[in-house]
Amino acid sequence: MGSLVFYILAFLTVLSAGAVVCLPKVIHSAIALIICFCLLAIHYLFLGSEFIAALQILIYAGAIMVLLVVSIVLMGSAFENQQEAGLLAKVIGVILASALLFVLSLAVPVGKGQFLNFEEQATILFSVVDIGQALFEKYFLAFELVGVLLLLVTVGAVMLLQEKKLPLPEGSGLRAKRQEHAKEAK
């Protein structure tokens, strides 16, 4: 029974992930990605990681996707009439991705082995206490470094988004395009 639920969930997860790649409109891809993240949170719950499941909903489906959707809304019209890759590029991409899938699947241990005694083990629940102890004792340096990284990213994002335009190369056609857009804006 448990495995049936897993297979249905896994199918839906792969389906929504495929929808992210296949749907032509970018906002539809974003919604498919939110569904995929929520399904992954359910997988984390089945794996006994309640805290990670909560973080998945909060950070991914919450913060990151809100960022992405807001930027889609802000740049709205720019994403219509998007030129897509040609048929040859698509075929090569599919071949390369399937080759990667095949090679990585070979590395997955299948069948009964020393490593695969998961069924006999009871699913243990990782509480916030376990994770907190590991984070603040064993991996405290990583915790501090992540704090520094987030500060740097915040400062960097604000700095990069100041109102200034990059110099454009002569004769690339981009200058004329920019002036055209500036005229349209007026």
């Binding site: 792969v14 992930a17 930027s71 994403f79 899938l101």
Partner: peptide, 18 residues
């Protein structure tokens, strides 16, 4: 692995940066 491969496929095939 399949999620990773689908992600790689999207990076290879799609032209839209978002």
């Amino acid at each position: 692995v399949s999620l990773f491969a689908i992600g790689v496929l999207g990076v290879l095939v799609r032209r839209n940066v978002l």
